[in-house]
Design a protein around this nucleic acid. Structure first.
Lengths: 342, 342
DNA sequence: TTGTAGGCGTTATCAG
DNA sequence: CTGATAACGCCTACAA
């Protein structure tokens, strides 16, 4: 089953390829009669233009690349969903690559996408990313590029972010408002901007409330896993029996904390209140239900593609593109794990 | 920043495009000297072959399409992960599309991928799929094609599946072994093969154990959601106060059931035991921990790509391809929600 | 060892 | 209104 080509249609109809092409693209300068004949035959033969040839001619593939640190992740799944749906609306397909939170792999994936000549690239940095050279390269090559979630502030590109510092401040303030006096923070790895910002938000809020900051109350995740949540929960109660609140970098870690406390019979929230970040589905079905910070994920995907499209259009028209940043809102969701009753 | 082409290299070196091409592809009939010169210059200019042109010439794009009913789903995320990683090993990129469990959209996505001329397509059918015409079309066009998870038995293609009937039998037998006498089943929608098979497994196991099958104990999900789990849990205890076990089509639904029972103070497992299906991450952190059937998901993705690659190779060599089916194993994971103590 | 020529399938320009 | 011609960038017989 070879696919039909313009040439075949032209041969059958005894006209030129040019005319066939024009007829199918509804050019004004084709007689209605030939146009009709062409369209009917094309329909009959199930003609669709060979996209490889179209790509070569038009120098665009209507395909974009999306690099995600971890596909199996409630937050990123939603981002992917948002990107795919929005992209499809505008006729774009999405190639997904995973960096596995590894800088090495991330570099490789970027190179792959550049070689594939995708029309644009969107990515959330891996936790290891601190050397930005491979990303600067993308921008230097004028490839439309959008960063989202975990970004590098130093790179001049469009970005979709939340205000992590502000969100963290609200989360910690919430714990304080509910009566927490000594709050530990399980933070993310060193590099990612969002784990830095959440940490800063935590610190600032303590200061604002006259609570002394104590670096011993900071526990740093390497991988940001459920298991680390369990482990740090254990360490926290052992090291600091008087800690009465925990702010975790993300729900997965907070769920690990809850799991440990449940197992040990440590009362949440009365003994220790817990708040996570991201509002995974899971958090609402935990016992106790996990308080968290709702972070738009689907919307982030949509916004990221919107910005990419802006750049795509702008460059196509040969205009100078000025990157834009969209900041999405967050809000604290108070559930059982932070509602002390004593 | 225009990308370098063979032509440019040829011009600079004052040789023909052909020679440059050959030198870069390490043909034997190029003098070591020119070869060296070409390779060095190519390196310097950062030459990478224009993939659009390569696609057109070779008629393949090293890109495959993956159609998923629902991207935001622990099981499918893992499948995606498996496919992407395995595909990348062999130099393939993966375009992901979501059918949203809609037949209409699924048809559209298939057409899109065919138009893009991806090298192959992998898909899990939407719940609405019963009309197979669009899929037959794929097979008829000789496009390498693999079905996984939710498949159509009538389509001649490679498949990756689990033995849903057997898995369901083991799950229900487990409930019976733990002392359940009257077991309700919250099943999936009518069409999908796996919801049919799990239902049959349920029914057979009852019969095998001399428990009469009662169609009133069957509750059918439309969307397979958490909310349906809650709703059916409510109906079950109201309609049949003596039901002492529930087998749910998937963990998400089972979690809804647990949520309802927790809220109403209905004892799980002592009053009613519950078992789900799929072994989502969530199920192990629920209270009580949810018993379930572990279903390989990452492995399913890997296997699906492996079969696709087989077909790709086979067709490339012009051989006749015979579809193959891989059946992956499952096993019951007994956790708190089914371990009755009375 | 090197180069010429043709084609993959489409689109754009320019004459007729 | 129609068509010849030339790209797009690469690959590969076949000549030289």
């Amino acid at each position: 089953m070879k696919a039909t080509t313009l040439k075949e249609i032209a041969n059958i109809l005894g006209i030129s390829i040019t005319t066939v092409s024009k007829a199918l693209k509804d050019y004004p300068d084709v007689s209605p009669k030939t146009k009709k004949a062409v369209i009917e035959l094309a329909e009959e033969l199930n003609f669709t233009p060979n996209s490889f040839a179209v790509n070569l001619r038009t120098k665009e593939s209507k395909t974009i690349g999306l690099i995600i640190p971890d596909v199996v992740h409630h937050f990123f799944s939603n981002v992917i969903h948002g990107v795919i749906e929005e992209a499809n609306k505008y006729g774009y397909l999405v190639i997904i690559l995973q960096s596995n939170e590894s800088l090495e792999l991330e570099k490789k994936q970027v190179a792959l996408l550049i070689n594939k000549r995708v029309d644009g690239i969107m990515m959330s940095l891996s936790n290891e990313s601190n050397n930005d050279f491979h990303i600067k390269e993308v921008v230097r090559k004028q490839i439309p590029f959008v960063q989202f979630d975990k970004i590098s502030k130093l790179i001049q590109s469009s970005k979709v972010i939340i205000n992590d510092q502000k969100a963290a401040m609200e989360a910690v303030q919430h714990l304080i408002d509910k009566g927490c006096k000594k709050i530990a923070h399980i933070r993310g790895p060193e590099n990612p901007q969002n784990s830095i910002d959440r940490f800063l938000g935590y610190k600032k809020t303590l200061e604002k409330n006259g609570i002394p900051y104590d670096s011993k109350l900071i526990y740093t995740c390497k991988k940001v896993t459920f298991e680390e949540g369990i482990e740090f929960a254990k360490q926290i109660v052992e090291d600091h029996p008087d800690v009465d609140g925990i702010f975790a970098i993300t729900d997965l870690v907070a769920v690990g904390v809850l799991a440990y406390f449940n197992e040990k019979g440590i009362q949440v929230p009365n003994k220790i209140a817990v708040i996570g970040f991201s509002n995974w589905f899971m958090s609402q079905v935990m016992t106790p239900k996990l308080s968290t910070v709702d972070q738009p994920s689907y919307e982030m995907g949509v916004a990221a593609f919107t910005l990419l499209l802006e750049e795509l259009h702008c460059r196509k028209e040969g205009k100078i593109f000025t990157p834009r940043t969209i900041e999405l809102g967050t809000n604290v969701i108070a559930r059982e794990s932070s509602l002390k009753t004593n």
